Amino acid sequence: MDKLARYRQIIRQLIFDYAIHKPANGQIETESVIDSEPDLYEVLYVGWDGVRRVHGSVVIDKKY
């Protein structure tokens, strides 16, 4: 396995491991967004905390 493929695999596993932990408050879901071709990786929080809408990136790894 070449070095780039190994790095992609490590980052993908880290994203999945981080995304399984849900916030303690509210009805908030975590979502993993992975696009290996342009190397875009992200974990999002989406949901509700009482009457407040929760949405946003928690972890982002982008190649610029």
Rank of each mutant, 00 (worst) to 15 (best):
L44Y: 13
H55G: 11
G26M: 04
H55P: 00
Q27A: 00
W48A: 04
A5I: 00
I11P: 02
D35P: 02
L40F: 11
P38M: 04
L14R: 14
V43P: 15
A5D: 11
I20V: 15
R52Q: 12
I60G: 05
Q27N: 04
S36V: 12
E31P: 01
Y18C: 07
Y18K: 07
G50N: 06
R12W: 00
L40V: 06
V54H: 00
Q9A: 13
A19L: 02
N25Y: 08
D17M: 01
I10F: 05
D2I: 06
E42T: 09
D2E: 15
I28S: 01
S32H: 07
G47Y: 02
S36A: 15
P38Y: 11
A5N: 12
R8N: 14
M1W: 10
Y7H: 10
Y18T: 05
Y18V: 07
E29D: 15
S57T: 03
D17E: 09
V59T: 09
P23M: 07
E31S: 11
V54L: 00
L40N: 08
Y45W: 14
R6Y: 08
I60V: 14
K3G: 00
K22M: 06
D49I: 10
Y7E: 13
G50V: 07
E29V: 04
W48Q: 11
P23I: 04
V46R: 14
K3I: 08
Y64K: 09
R53K: 14
R8C: 09
K22N: 08
H55E: 04
N25S: 11
R12P: 00
H55Q: 12
Y18A: 15
I28Q: 00
V51D: 15
S32W: 02
V43Y: 07
V58A: 10
S32K: 14
R12N: 12
I11Y: 06
D39P: 03
D49M: 10
I15Y: 03
R53A: 15
R6M: 07
A5E: 15
V46G: 02
K63L: 14
V46D: 14
Q9E: 15
R6A: 11
H55M: 08
Y7L: 13
W48R: 15
E29H: 11
I11M: 13
G47T: 08
V58I: 15
R52G: 01
H21F: 06
R53V: 12
G56F: 04
R6Q: 07
R12H: 09
I15R: 02
E31T: 11
Y41I: 08
R6S: 09
M1G: 14
A24H: 04
I60W: 00
Y41S: 07
Y7Q: 14
P23T: 01
E37D: 10
V51S: 15
I34P: 09
I10S: 07
E37N: 06
A19G: 12
S36F: 06
H55F: 10
L4C: 05
S57A: 06
V54M: 01
Q27C: 00
Q27F: 02
I34G: 09
G50S: 07
G56H: 03
K63S: 10
Q9H: 07
D49W: 03
R53C: 08
D17S: 03
D39R: 10
L40P: 01
V51F: 15
K3D: 04
M1Y: 09
Y41M: 09
D35S: 05
